[in-house]
Amino acid sequence: MPIPFFGALFGSTAAMSDKFPVQKTEGEWQAQLSPEQFRILRKKGTEPPGSGTYDKHYPSSGVYTCTGCNAPLYKANHKFDSGCGWPAFWDAVPGAVGQRDDSTFGMKRTEIVCNSCGGHLGHIFKGEGFKNPKDERHCVNSVSINFSPEENK
């Protein structure tokens, strides 16, 4: 049986077929993003747990934006410590994050993507018993986001 994390670490080569407002060719994305950013955002990879810049980052205000297109995705006050090894948010900026079924590696999960460029952010998990208003955990790769202390991004 394949190990789900191992497969997710290296990413999928499945192409994204959805149309998003920000459209670029694979070559344009490769020129803009670092190899690690490209692997995660465009090929649906995963960074190792606990390795990301924003895993233990807890500012009181600000906004996290998409690394690929700079669209605002999450507010700092929606971030919480889930202990999962990746940045966790209980809600997104309204309309900023899309969800789609992901059954890769024999698992049933929900992928989250930037609704502006389609970049892979991570996965959302619901009903885990976290004490937040939605009982949700958006498990996001640090590589997929940037932080700005400015709220009005």
Score class of each variant (00 low, 15 high):
residue 1 M to V: 15
residue 1 M to A: 14
residue 2 P to H: 14
residue 5 F to H: 11
residue 6 F to E: 15
residue 7 G to P: 10
residue 9 L to T: 15
residue 9 L to V: 11
residue 11 G to I: 07
residue 11 G to E: 10
residue 11 G to Y: 12
residue 11 G to C: 09
residue 12 S to T: 15
residue 15 A to V: 12
residue 16 M to S: 13
residue 16 M to C: 14
residue 17 S to E: 13
residue 18 D to F: 10
residue 19 K to Y: 08
residue 19 K to L: 05
residue 19 K to S: 08
residue 21 P to R: 04
residue 22 V to T: 15
residue 24 K to W: 08
residue 24 K to A: 11
residue 24 K to V: 08
residue 25 T to D: 08
residue 25 T to Q: 10
residue 27 G to W: 08
residue 29 W to A: 15
residue 30 Q to F: 15
residue 31 A to W: 11
residue 31 A to I: 13
residue 32 Q to I: 12
residue 34 S to W: 12
residue 34 S to E: 09
residue 34 S to R: 11
residue 34 S to L: 11
residue 36 E to V: 10
residue 38 F to Y: 14
residue 42 R to Q: 03
residue 43 K to H: 12
residue 43 K to M: 08
residue 45 G to Q: 04
residue 46 T to M: 08
residue 47 E to K: 04
residue 47 E to C: 02
residue 49 P to R: 02
residue 51 S to E: 11
residue 51 S to G: 13
residue 52 G to H: 06
residue 53 T to R: 09
residue 54 Y to E: 11
residue 55 D to R: 10
residue 55 D to E: 12
residue 56 K to L: 06
residue 56 K to R: 14
residue 57 H to N: 15
residue 59 P to D: 05
residue 61 S to N: 08
residue 62 G to Q: 10
residue 62 G to A: 05
residue 62 G to C: 08
residue 63 V to E: 00
residue 64 Y to R: 01
residue 64 Y to L: 02
residue 66 C to T: 02
residue 66 C to P: 03
residue 66 C to A: 02
residue 66 C to Q: 01
residue 68 G to R: 04
residue 69 C to W: 06
residue 70 N to S: 09
residue 70 N to T: 02
residue 73 L to T: 09
residue 75 K to R: 15
residue 78 H to P: 05
residue 79 K to S: 09
residue 82 S to A: 03
residue 84 C to K: 02
residue 86 W to L: 06
residue 87 P to A: 01
residue 88 A to C: 10
residue 90 W to V: 03
residue 90 W to M: 01
residue 90 W to C: 03
residue 94 P to V: 00
residue 94 P to G: 00
residue 94 P to A: 00
residue 95 G to Y: 01
residue 96 A to F: 00
residue 97 V to G: 00
residue 97 V to R: 01
residue 98 G to A: 03
residue 98 G to N: 01
residue 103 S to P: 06
residue 103 S to C: 00
residue 103 S to F: 02
residue 104 T to L: 00
residue 106 G to C: 00
residue 107 M to S: 03
residue 108 K to Q: 03
residue 112 I to R: 05
residue 114 C to V: 05
residue 116 S to M: 01
residue 118 G to Y: 04
residue 121 L to F: 12
residue 122 G to N: 04
residue 122 G to M: 08
residue 122 G to V: 01
residue 123 H to C: 14
residue 123 H to T: 13
residue 123 H to D: 13
residue 123 H to A: 13
residue 124 I to W: 07
residue 127 G to H: 14
residue 128 E to V: 12
residue 129 G to M: 09
residue 132 N to Y: 05
residue 132 N to I: 05
residue 133 P to C: 11
residue 134 K to L: 12
residue 135 D to G: 04
residue 136 E to N: 05
residue 136 E to A: 03
residue 136 E to G: 01
residue 140 V to D: 08
residue 140 V to E: 07
residue 141 N to V: 07
residue 141 N to H: 10
residue 143 V to C: 06
residue 143 V to T: 13
residue 145 I to G: 13
residue 146 N to W: 02
residue 147 F to L: 08
residue 149 P to M: 04
residue 149 P to R: 10
residue 149 P to A: 04
residue 150 E to H: 12
residue 151 E to K: 12
residue 152 N to Q: 05
